[in-house]
């Protein structure tokens, strides 16, 4: 409605515009971006590249970010996009994978049980498992951020859990 739109404009003029502190954003979210990139690509070299790409892109688009919530969504969306059809295929992955995971892991005395299994999943499923269980996003939030239907998120989660249940049989019971 014309009237309401006008009011919104006026409101916007009076409010102080949100400014992103780039260094702070990196400190807060580099972990999230890196982990999501690692989940989707399966190796640290690509995760490094994507981390760099996403934050450089952030600088380019910094004026478009409207709030802290927007910043977080934007970063995740950018990471998902940059690694969109990213896959790295080569025989070396099978041999290197475990070593790569250990390399990626900075400090973890216990054995990685779940991580290798999750990394084996198709990348769509890996993404939703990571975002749902680690980052704590709801199905709706994941759907909104990734631009997919809610049902798609649910079915990907379901399929992933079914696979993990088999892979982790005897190791983890409550998948």
């Amino acid at each position: 409605m014309f009237i309401f739109q006008t009011f919104l404009w006026v409101d916007a003029l009076q409010e102080e515009p949100f400014k992103v502190d780039a260094a702070k954003a990196f400190k807060t979210y580099s972990g999230t971006v890196y982990r999501l990139a690692f989940v989707r690509t399966g190796n640290t070299a690509d995760a490094d590249d994507i981390l760099s790409d996403v934050f450089v892109r952030l600088i380019k688009n910094i004026s478009k970010i409207k709030s802290e919530v927007h910043l977080r969504s934007w970063l995740i969306r950018a990471t998902v996009n940059q690694s969109k059809t990213y896959y790295k295929k080569s025989k070396r992955i099978e041999k290197v994978r475990l070593a790569d995971i250990d390399g990626a892991v900075q400090q973890n005395s216990e054995e990685n049980l779940v991580l290798p299994a999750v990394m084996e999943l198709p990348y769509h499923q890996k993404t939703v498992i990571y975002m749902h269980y680690f980052e704590g996003y709801s199905v709706e939030e994941i759907a909104g951020i990734c631009g997919i239907a809610k049902g798609t998120v649910k079915s990907r989660l379901a399929r992933a859990r079914k696979t993990l249940k088999t892979t982790l049989e005897g190791v983890i019971m409550d998948v």
């Binding site: 580099s30 972990g31 890196y34 982990r35 690692f38 995760a47 490094d48 981390l51 990626a104 892991v105 900075q106 400090q107 973890n108 216990e110 990685n112 049980l113 779940v114 991580l115 999750v118 498992i129 990571y130 269980y133 680690f134 993990l164 982790l168 983890i172 019971m173 409550d174 998948v175």
Partner: peptide
């Protein structure tokens, strides 16, 4: 347990 394990194992992945 699954959730805890995921969180713990993923937390250790850092640049």
């Amino acid at each position: 347990m699954f959730k805890e394990k995921i969180i713990k194992e993923f937390e250790a992945i850092k640049p």
